Amino acid sequence: MSSRRADLTSVTWRKSSYSNSDGGNCVEVSDDFDGLVPVRDSKLPEGPAVVFGTSAWTAFISDVR
């Protein structure tokens, strides 16, 4: 297991198309990394982000759909 962390200080975040417009249930992801997909709660932008490998994120999205 790697102890390396992605630097998320200057990434571009995009809100999920499934997030509602009143500010609730908002998930943001970043496409700035090859092989990694950082995910965060847009209501807590300074809070933690979870970083998925691309294949794990693709599997997650597939299962959610």
Rank of each mutant, 00 (worst) to 15 (best):
E28N: 09
V27N: 01
I61M: 13
E46A: 11
V37C: 06
V27F: 00
P38G: 08
S2K: 09
S3K: 14
S16P: 05
I61C: 13
R5K: 11
V64M: 14
G23E: 06
P38T: 09
V29D: 00
S16H: 12
S10H: 10
R40Q: 00
T12D: 13
C26W: 01
W13M: 03
T12K: 07
S17F: 05
D63K: 15
G35Y: 07
A6Q: 03
G35R: 07
S55W: 11
R4F: 13
G47Y: 00
R40G: 00
P45N: 04
S10Y: 07
K15M: 02
E28F: 06
F60S: 01
S62P: 01
P45I: 02
R14P: 01
F52L: 09
A49K: 05
D41T: 05
T12C: 05
N20C: 06
V39L: 11
L8S: 01
V29G: 00
T9R: 12
I61Y: 11
R5V: 14
N20E: 12
S3M: 15
T9D: 07
R40V: 03
I61R: 15
V11Y: 04
A59Q: 15
P38S: 08
T54M: 06
F60M: 03
G23S: 05
F33N: 11
A49W: 03
V11E: 06
S2I: 09
P48K: 10
P45D: 03
G23M: 06
R40S: 00
G35P: 05
S21R: 04
W57M: 02
T9F: 06
V11Q: 05
V50S: 00
S42M: 01
F33P: 15
S42N: 08
W13L: 00
G53C: 11
E46C: 08
V50D: 00
V37P: 05
S3G: 12
S19T: 02
F33T: 11
L44V: 09
G35A: 08
S3W: 14
V50W: 00
